[in-house]
């Protein structure tokens, strides 16, 4: 269970009010898309859920407990860029979370512990469609593959909440569609609550179970400083999407997605990628 309760949250930077009076309850295993114009505080809101920033006023509860004031393993994150570590291979990137949690001082695993962790990491790498690239470095992967890697890396911690900050914004439309399929499958198969910031309305309505729109109610230049953005629309997708439950209305639209065959962003069957250079 991983319910998020946001109560009367304000965020101010000095005199500038960014968010005002935001209240939102995110049910466990929901998939919430945060949309809104640029600069309306969506990403600030996500950073507060992450623990990177503190609300100026108001409280954020996760499972009834106050949100820790720094990022932790219960909340995973995928950014648009810089989410993976350039100095580690694909396998190393996915292993890192395991190594942090199992080895306090060396942060590195050896012997049987490492073999177990590698096995788990390989399963996840296969799960996101990156098998065969274990020994490659992130720069050798395409943008879509790097985001798949970032997902695998976050998933190995089994976070309660997965936060996505415009994760697919920089990808080509074709590759984006493929990674959406993956994203849907992961949401159905895992126990995570997902909160995603996106610019792309289509993406929001394709993936989410609920769309939350942020907007400034007063946006005249002289008002900009003193009035922040707040939630102006809160739309539940109808017919409802539920994690792990195929939709009875249009199973084609939702439902755990079946593998649709070989796609552009997947590896070639020979194990060689046509994307990597």
């Amino acid at each position: 269970m991983s319910e998020l309760v946001i109560q009367n949250v304000w965020k101010e930077y000095g005199d500038q009010i960014v968010l005002e009076n935001v209240s939102l309850t995110v049910a466990s295993r929901a998939f919430v898309a945060l949309v809104g114009p640029s600069g309306c505080g969506k990403s600030t809101f996500l950073r507060m859920l992450l623990g990177q920033e503190k609300p100026t006023r108001g409280t954020i509860l996760i499972d009834g407990q106050p949100m820790p004031t720094e990022p932790g393993p219960d909340r995973g994150i995928v950014f648009q860029r810089y989410s993976v570590f350039p100095h580690l291979t694909v396998l190393g990137n996915v292993l890192l979370g395991k190594e942090f949690s199992k080895s306090r001082h060396k942060a590195k695993l050896f012997g049987a512990a490492r073999r177990n962790a590698v096995e788990e990491a390989r399963d996840l790498i296969t799960e996101v469609g990156l098998s065969g690239t274990e020994q490659k470095y992130p720069v050798q992967l395409s943008g879509g593959m790097q985001q798949r890697l970032a997902l695998a890396q976050a998933l190995i911690m089994k976070p309660k909440v997965l936060l996505l900050d415009e994760p697919f914004g920089a990808l080509d439309p074709g590759i984006r569609a493929e990674i959406h399929t993956l994203m849907k499958r992961l949401w159905h198969e895992t126990q995570m609550t997902i909160v995603m910031v996106t610019h792309d309305m289509r993406e929001a309505f394709t993936l989410a179970s609920r769309i939350v729109a942020f907007e400034r109610r007063r946006d005249r230049p002289e008002e900009k400083q003193r009035y922040g953005a707040t939630i102006t629309n809160d739309i539940a997708i109808w017919p409802p999407r539920q994690a792990g439950v195929p939709s009875i209305f249009s199973p084609d639209r939702d439902g755990p997605v079946a593998f649709l065959g070989h796609r552009r962003d997947d590896l070639a069957l020979s194990g060689e990628s046509s994307e990597a250079h």
Binding site: Q52, G72, I77
Partner: peptide, 15 residues
Amino acid sequence: EQIIKAETLGGSSWQ
């Protein structure tokens, strides 16, 4: 972002 990501993977300052 890299450091934040490492924190969400459970890393301590030392790690």
